[in-house]
Design a protein around this nucleic acid. Structure first.
Lengths: 233, 233
DNA sequence: AGACTGGCTTAGAGGCGATAAGGAACCATA
DNA sequence: TATGGTTCCTTATCGCCTCTAAGCCAGTCT
């Protein structure tokens, strides 16, 4: 809560940054991602044009900062769902977090779509950016729960020998990247679940399933049942 | 092959349209989707600016036409894979078509990403557009094969009574939309498979899995094994 | 008091989508 | 063959965009 630290100038600057983010978000929600321009945001904040360059290096930087905000908010929503069921078994917490993820996506469709539809265009994303760190925080909510599940109630995993070699190598690398908290086989199960879950949400938000479904809630619940099956919940 | 029909003017117009599409595509591939602007395309074609408005009503129309091209090319690639295995059992044809889909996506990443990353932003897409029809053609390749599989070698489907009511209603509507060629239960299996397959490809192309995988080929093959399992191939 | 810094302004270059107005080639028909 | 309509293309222009440059002004530091 020591949010008001720093000199007067720093406090003012933080307030302005906050205002910029709010303006950008309202433009996104009300008029779509194309409306989030430097000029429009500045206009909404009350300063004119180039002043925004004192806060962000350019349009891309602003977009990245706002995206990081969204990732943090989504991660927070998921963490809240997790902590609201702190006493429940890990499996229930995982399901609650998944539902919270979709709930946030449904209540904030513009923001959720923005997260990967808007900035995906850019090819090489530097790994030290705010956006990247925020994305990692988001990803780690479910990863951490899966680690806990793995430690307390291990789920069935494929024999590493049954996996094709190229896949095994990638899984070993990923396992090392998360400090070995999941062995390659368990990492494979986790990534499969993640891919199905996130992929389904991705397609829902990008309206790739509108040709068949008008409400994906039961589809999502069925997906969760599949995951519960795989994770032996 | 009667591609040269029509008056001289019509032929010239078709040639120019072709040239416009090629220019737009090369801009997309070489410089990214943001580079596909009316002015840049016109410049590349050799005419200047507003001349393009004699061919397309605006930027959106051009984007839509190019997208339709991509859908047609992808659908053609899948149909070729299907017809190359015309003698094989349906199951093998389905797998061949899925692999052809990913192969096209891998050899044309910019185009495949463009298909749903670029034009998804637009909210209401009129259902009679070229783009929409081309997308339908693409979707129908696998749908038709699934229908054939269902007729010749029906796969296990859930009891309709086991499905939640809201899902059942949507499936009934979708089944009617495809002229009942698949009953709701079979449609559900088909849509599940489609969602997993297309969702995986979507995430691969949008680089949502780069944090874990560098080469998704074995992951895709495992997904295909799952589908073969579900479809009882 | 003076110098520095940060926050802001306007001016402007260059590119974008889109419209308007007009010239030139083509084509059909009286 | 002359005339008029259609088609293709041009330049000019508007308003918006990103981003840079130059400069003003008020707090802040020494």
């Amino acid at each position: 809560m020591a949010a008001e630290a720093g000199s007067r100038r720093q406090r003012l600057r933080r307030a302005t940054l906050q205002e910029i983010h709010t303006a950008a978000r309202s433009l996104l929600v009300e008029q779509g991602s194309a409306a989030v321009t430097i000029n429009a945001v500045a206009r909404q904040v009350g300063m004119s044009g180039p002043a925004l360059y004192h806060y962000y290096a350019g349009h891309d930087a602003l977009v990245g900062a706002v995206t990081a905000d969204f990732f943090h908010e989504l991660a927070t929503a998921m963490e809240h769902a997790r902590d609201a069921h702190a006493a429940a078994p890990v499996g229930e917490r995982i399901l609650a977090v998944c539902r919270a993820m979709r709930a946030w996506a449904r209540t904030h469709p513009a923001e959720f779509g923005w997260i990967f539809a808007s900035p995906i265009a850019s090819p090489n994303r530097q790994p030290d950016s705010d956006r990247h760190q925020a994305g990692q925080r988001f990803e780690h909510v479910l990863l951490d729960l899966t680690v806990e599940l793995w430690r307390t109630r291990p789920f069935p995993v494929p024999e590493p020998a049954d996996l094709p070699e190229s896949l095994r190598e990638q899984l070993v690398a990923y396992s090392a990247g998360i400090d070995g908290r999941l062995p390659p086989g368990a990492a494979h199960v986790f990534l499969s679940c993640w891919t199905r879950l996130y992929g389904l949400l991705c397609m829902e938000v990008l309206h790739q399933l509108d040709f068949a479904y008008s409400d994906l809630e039961p589809v999502f619940e069925e997906c969760l049942r599949d995951l519960a099956d795989v994770l032996d919940l």
